[in-house]
């Protein structure tokens, strides 16, 4: 018969197998096991399962896997050369303090990250452009404003770079900086950008209590959906519209 006590004992099963119970608990468990066949047999099965799990064999990786990884790596290494690694640019965004940046600027500023050639430098520079993108900057100009506390909605305004003639497909990612500097895309949307027109998109999913750990990445994508070039901007927190 399964009793309340059985449930309590069940919580200790892993510790029993590992032998990490303290003396008092061990005594309690042993006492229960002497009178409960259900727990005794479950525990025996768990021990068996445990060793099967530990001995689960490794699958061999497919023959082409290493080549696939190296091809992607080579492509990434080539992409990184002219414009600095993505991670350096992300780091620059998170290292900058959007509030401080805004203090000196009136209303909305358009931000662009200066291209960085020193890939391994831990120092990153952030340049603030007063309004329209310069001709030398291949990246999109974008500004991101936090709109809504409840939904964590961020509004992103994108402007095509000078030199873009036709309509371009861009991907807008809401990026979160996790501990250990792992960056992850929380949410993304694909849209198009027409020269001379502002494109506004909205993304949800930011934790509004922790906005300094978020940024917006705007990337050009080719027909295959691959990101070609990207601009990363912090989220400007002064244009906040708190929930009513």
């Amino acid at each position: 018969m399964v009793t309340m006590q059985c449930e309590k004992i069940g919580e200790q099963f892993s510790a029993i197998v590992e032998g990490s119970l303290d003396a008092a608990m061990k005594l309690k468990v042993e006492e229960h096991l002497q009178s409960c066949t259900s727990c005794t047999s479950q525990l025996a099965e768990l021990r068996k399962l445990w060793s099967m799990l530990d001995e689960l064999p490794e699958l061999s990786a497919p023959a082409g896997l290493h080549g696939d990884i190296m091809r992607s790596l080579d492509a990434a290494m080539n992409d990184a050369r002219p414009q600095g690694g993505l991670i350096e640019r992300l780091k620059a965004v998170f290292a900058s303090n959007p509030r401080a940046v805004l203090a000196g600027a009136a209303a909305i500023v358009l931000l662009a990250i200066a291209p960085m050639f020193a890939r391994n430098s831990t120092e990153a520079s952030l340049s603030i452009l007063p309004s329209a993108p310069t001709t030398s900057d291949v990246h999109y100009s974008a500004s991101a404003i936090w709109l809504q506390r409840q939904t964590g909605q961020v509004q992103v305004t994108i402007l095509a770079p000078a030199g873009q003639t036709g309509v371009a497909n861009v991907k807008v990612d809401l990026i979160q900086n996790l501990p250990d500097s792992v960056y992850t895309s929380v949410n993304s949307v694909v849209t198009n950008v027409i020269p001379g027109q502002l494109r506004v998109v909205r993304l949800t999913g930011a934790n509004t209590d922790d906005l300094l750990h978020y940024a917006i990445m705007v990337s050009t994508i080719n027909r295959a959906g691959k990101s070609l070039q990207s601009t990363t901007v912090p989220i400007l927190t002064t244009a906040v519209r708190p929930a009513p």
Partner: peptide
Amino acid sequence: GDITVDTFMRVYQAIGLFRGDA
């Protein structure tokens, strides 16, 4: 296979920030 490739791409992007304390 895809997850493995993507994982190593993120490793490449983030390796400069791996501090070595983990």
